[in-house]
């Protein structure tokens, strides 16, 4: 590791210590932080819930970082794909009576095929173009998806009542069963994708294409096919994320925007193209959001501010992100 790299890592660590202490300091000022056992129980609950939420966030980020890594396409429609996943799950649940998690058995292949089609019809045209071109195209795609979803589903909020029971994790920490299930699902799916990329032949070819498409071609890798598979996997990841959103929260066609921004923040935080970074970034972001919300007066409204503040400062200190390396 280069010296400047090490220094930026220290600087980042110092910044993060400050960022995470800030809610506590403000909380002490306003008396929302107490030192009794009961308060620590609330704190523990919030941190634990943040960790669970972070796992789901991380899965959004993995899909986003995958497409970017392989094709240098910033997919501004990622959140809308999450939203589409939520609706697919909702339709399966309310009209076909399928369990939201069981529905993944057929929603994921559908999502994969939609991704392949998307790549063929739209994204192949923007691979290799300036990043802004791809950003504008996917931004337009996202708006179109919102509009179509409004036409089909209206802007009403939907939700799937699923596993609402309380799970008493420890004596003091309680959490919804759906949240626990979502976390386990998100982490397993992300891990499966990670292992696939790390060890399988096709996964290695995807990584190789991300690192250098021309050399991948020279190695006999059919890069066009890799692009199809990559977008297929990314859309499937988004749709899986949507299923997990649908069993926890209300959603409507405009919900996706929030998830796109969160995924961006996490990718920047964790380092582009870095999967372990995405997991850590997801956990960090969600925990910080919850700490801000818990301790700062009217903090629920300040959560987005905190998320983007974190993103901007990490970008300034360490443009490659937490786990990122300088690009060759």
């Amino acid at each position: 590791m280069e010296k400047s790299d090490v220094r930026s890592l220290y600087l980042l660590a110092a910044f993060l210590v400050c960022a995470y202490s800030l809610p506590f300091l403000i909380g002490i000022q306003f008396g929302t932080v107490r030192a009794d056992e009961q308060w620590f129980a609330y704190l523990a609950t919030v941190v634990f819930a943040g960790i669970l939420q972070g796992g789901v966030y991380a899965m959004f980020a993995v899909g986003l970082t995958l497409i970017f890594g392989v094709m240098r396409i910033i997919n501004a429609a990622h959140g809308e794909m999450v939203m589409m996943g939520a609706y697919l799950t909702w339709v399966a649940f309310f009209y076909l009576g399928v369990d939201p998690l069981l529905a993944l058995v057929f929603t994921l292949p559908i999502a994969f095929l939609l991704g392949v089609a998307l790549q063929k019809v739209l994204l192949n045209a923007v691979v290799g173009q300036p990043e802004l071109t791809a950003l504008l195209v996917t931004f337009g795609l996202g708006l179109t998806m919102i509009y179509v979803a409004e036409l089909i589903f209206t802007t009403d909020f939907r939700t799937i009542p699923y596993a609402p029971q309380t799970v008493q994790v420890t004596r003091t920490i309680a959490v919804g069963q759906n949240k626990l299930i979502s976390f386990v699902m998100a982490v397993s799916i992300s891990a499966a994708v990670y292992l696939f990329l790390k060890f399988s032949r096709l996964g290695k070819a995807i990584r190789a294409t991300a690192l250098n498409a021309e050399v991948a071609m020279v190695c006999g890798i059919n890069v066009q096919r890799i692009y199809l598979v990559t977008t297929g996997i990314a859309v499937a990841l988004a749709v899986a994320g949507g299923a997990l959103v649908s069993i926890q929260f209300g959603f409507n066609p405009e919900t996706g925007v929030v998830y796109t921004l969160q995924a961006f923040a996490i990718v920047i935080l964790g380092g582009r193209g870095h999967y372990v970074g995405a997991l850590i970034g997801g956990l960090m972001l969600a925990v910080l959001e919850n700490l801000v919300s818990l301790m700062i007066p009217n903090g629920t409204a300040a959560v987005e501010l905190a998320a983007y503040g974190l993103m901007i400062f990490v970008l300034l200190i360490r443009p490659g992100g937490l786990m990122g390396v300088k690009e060759a």
Binding site: Y42, T45, E254, L294, M295, G299, A301, E304
Partner: peptide, 22 residues
């Protein structure tokens, strides 16, 4: 405790803990 949340808020976990803590 008095708090306003953004219209798009869907996760109230932390806010509920805050209310209990207050």
């Amino acid at each position: 405790l008095e708090e306003n949340y953004p219209p798009k808020q869907t996760d109230f976990t932390a806010l509920l803990q805050k209310i209990k803590a207050a």
